[in-house]
């Protein structure tokens, strides 16, 4: 019955891809804060597990046969609420979370301490007024934080045993960095988007990360957030979301945009717009990008999915009768969408 109720609505003429309901994970705890996936190895078997977070705890879910799931472990956190899960690519038995009130105040690792004793632990990575954080390849984490007088941007690494290793300082721009993305296809290149709508490019192969260039996105779409970056044919392509964009006649109501930058000149051009489905009222609230797939929760309570290369909306999950959608995340591949509701329910869809 649940599958039938939550069947995605395909838009007219866009029937190449679709979302198929797979499973529902229901935790007894309240409001879902975030959801993610992590590779987890225990008792000699390695599986892609789901991690769900509410304000006071984080749960690890293990797949069973026939699309069923079992809650394996719950980390109870302290008084500071969980704000987000920070996915770490290519890691196993390690979850990173950000905690805070209005903004991130600390970052913690949650990990399996010993597979033999099946014991779990958590450790503090960083504290401060943290504005943005991203998990990088090779068990690294980049973050931006502000003190009263300056901004600090840095990378910390984690050893196999869960200890934080020496950090790396990145040259900060004047304005606050609000999001990061690794540049696919260019080792040691990292981009960030700032509070005044610039894209900052770093090289992180030295002890001090060089700030290579800063390029302006343009004033039409303020407060752009970078989700993904890749290099192709001498250009830097950045996927941006626009939580504060206004509707226009030419572009509709844009949720995501692919922009091509020439890093040598700083000039840019918009390549593709992914707008809200025609006739769909509301705005972009929050979303996630994996490969060429983007998903976003809209103010209407629906989740929309786009093919970023085509600029087409390919599927729309209407608000569930029991509650609006609150979270949309891709699993480690774009083949699976994790959709969270405000009451803590998480639904898995095959895409």
């Amino acid at each position: 019955d649940a599958a039938e109720e939550l069947a995605p609505v395909l838009l007219d003429g866009l029937r190449e891809e679709s979302l198929q309901f797979v499973s529902k994970l229901k935790d007894s705890s309240s409001c879902a804060v975030d959801v993610s996936t992590v590779w987890w190895e225990a008792a000699g078997s390695r599986a892609l597990c789901v991690v769900t977070a509410c304000e006071s705890s984080v749960c690890l879910w293990q797949p069973l046969a026939s699309d069923h799931w079992r809650k394996v472990y719950t980390w109870q956190l302290g008084e500071i609420p969980v704000i987000q899960i920070v996915p770490l690519p290519d890691t196993c038995n390690l979850v990173c979370i950000a905690l805070g009130d209005l903004e991130i105040g600390e970052i913690r690792w949650l990990l399996l301490y010993s597979s033999e004793s099946d014991s779990f632990k958590q450790s503090l990575v960083k504290t401060g007024n943290i504005k943005a954080v991203l998990g990088l390849q090779d068990r690294r984490l980049v973050s931006s934080s502000r003190t009263a007088h300056e901004q600090q941007v840095g990378i910390v690494s984690l050893s196999e045993t869960g200890r934080s290793k020496d950090g790396q300082t990145l040259m900060p721009p004047e304005e606050t960095v609000l999001a990061f993305a690794e540049v696919e296809g260019v080792r040691d290149a990292l981009v960030g988007t700032t509070a005044v709508n610039s894209v900052v490019l770093w090289s992180v192969n030295l002890k001090t990360g060089q700030l290579l260039t800063k390029m302006h996105v343009g004033y039409s779409y303020p407060a752009s957030i970078c989700h993904r970056a890749y290099s192709d044919s001498g250009l830097l392509f950045v996927v941006l979301s626009h939580p504060h964009a206004k509707e226009s006649e030419s572009c509709g109501n844009p949720a995501f945009r692919v922009v091509a930058f020439n890093p040598r000149t700083g000039r840019s051009t918009g390549v593709m717009f992914s707008s809200l489905p025609p006739g769909h009222a509301g705005r972009y609230l929050e979303g996630d990008v994996k490969d060429a797939c983007a998903a976003a929760v809209l103010t209407s309570g629906a989740i929309a999915v786009w093919d970023l290369l085509l600029g087409h909306c390919t599927a729309l999950l209407p608000p569930d009768p029991e509650g609006a959608w609150a979270l949309a995340r891709w699993a480690t591949t774009s083949a699976c969408l994790l959709a969270g509701q405000q009451d803590g329910t998480v639904c898995l869809y095959r895409y």
Binding site: V186, A189, L201, S203, N205, L206, T208, Q210, L211, L212, T213, S231, S233, G234, L235, L236, A260, F261, N262, P263, R264, T265, R267, S268, T269, V271
Partner: peptide
């Protein structure tokens, strides 16, 4: 995207910018 819009394009932009940037 054309060079007239974006200026001269270099396939080695990352190496070139890294060499030019202050350490």
């Amino acid at each position: 995207c054309s060079e007239s819009d974006l200026g001269p394009i270099s396939l080695n932009w990352f190496e070139e910018l890294s060499a030019e940037a202050p350490p």
